[in-house]
């Protein structure tokens, strides 16, 4: 099944003033899988994410989404294609209510986002769908809370609900469990599992037990290049990977 790749990168390279952060990375994310990107600090994982969503322009290489070259597109265009990312630090709109957070993601489809003369009451038609999404992540009871007042794990859930509002084909999750306690990690892992039933997920993650539990394929990055790729059992026994991880730690 070579053609069921949803996202392919060819020789993806990023240089910052001579420093090569990502060097010739070939990725192939298959549709319907959870694909994890792991590697020691500074391996270039977040940079890859930034390249994929065009938050950074790449120096060399190509990015194909559903077979189409999206290398030169603007970030908002890529998002509208259905490649939606989350961020390392939880990305909510802090001084808006939980409901408004989700609604702002739904709003674009109305096509009235530039209508400064229209009443905000016209947005109320989106409330049922927004509440449905909040239900999915168990946040309905907090719909009128100001987002900044939510505990950290719940902010992550809100972020997921906001992302789902866009009905993305490919979800890019940047360290979804970073900085979380045990309880929250469990909840977010379950949430990712649920979300991935109908979608493809590419995630950067440090927590190896989460990675082992969730992912179908793992790509290990080190110093900007691909070190190994395969299922967890295989990758975790790869000597080069062990050296990059444990050797670097010692």
């Amino acid at each position: 099944m070579p053609d069921d790749a949803i996202l392919v990168t060819e020789k993806l390279t990023k240089e910052f003033h001579g420093f090569v952060a990502v060097s010739g990375v070939d990725l192939k994310v298959r549709r319907g899988t959870i694909h994890a990107l792991i590697g020691p600090n500074g391996a270039g994982k977040t940079t890859v994410f930034n390249l994929l969503t065009r938050f950074l322009p790449c120096t060399k290489g190509r990015i194909l989404f559903n077979g189409q070259d999206i290398t030169g597109e603007r970030p908002a265009q890529i998002a509208r294609r259905g490649v939606v990312r989350s961020f390392q630090v939880s990305a909510v709109f802090p001084r808006m209510t939980v409901l408004e957070n989700v609604r702002v993601a739904l709003q674009r489809k109305l096509g009235t986002s530039f209508h400064f003369w229209k009443s905000e009451k016209s947005l109320a038609q989106l409330d049922p769908r927004a509440l449905e999404l909040l239900d999915e992540v168990d946040l309905r009871a907090h719909a009128n809370t100001i987002a900044v007042e939510l505990p950290y794990g719940r902010k992550r859930s809100l972020e997921v609900a906001t992302t789902l509002a866009l009905e993305p084909e490919l979800l890019l999750l940047d360290e979804p469990t970073q900085g979380m306690g045990h309880e929250d990690v469990g909840r977010v892992t379950a949430l990712i599992e649920k979300v991935a039933e109908k979608r493809t997920v590419l995630m950067v993650e440090h927590n190896l037990s989460v990675v082992a539990h969730l992912s179908d394929v793992i790509t290990v990055l080190a110093r900007g290049t691909v070190l190994a790729e395969g299922p967890y059992q295989e990758v975790s026994k790869n000597p080069a990977v062990l050296e990059a991880y444990i050797g670097a730690a010692e």
Partner: peptide
Amino acid sequence: HVLRSIRENEARALSLG
């Protein structure tokens, strides 16, 4: 509402398309 989302978190608003 979109303006407020940009004020609150520009990168996130961008990633919402």
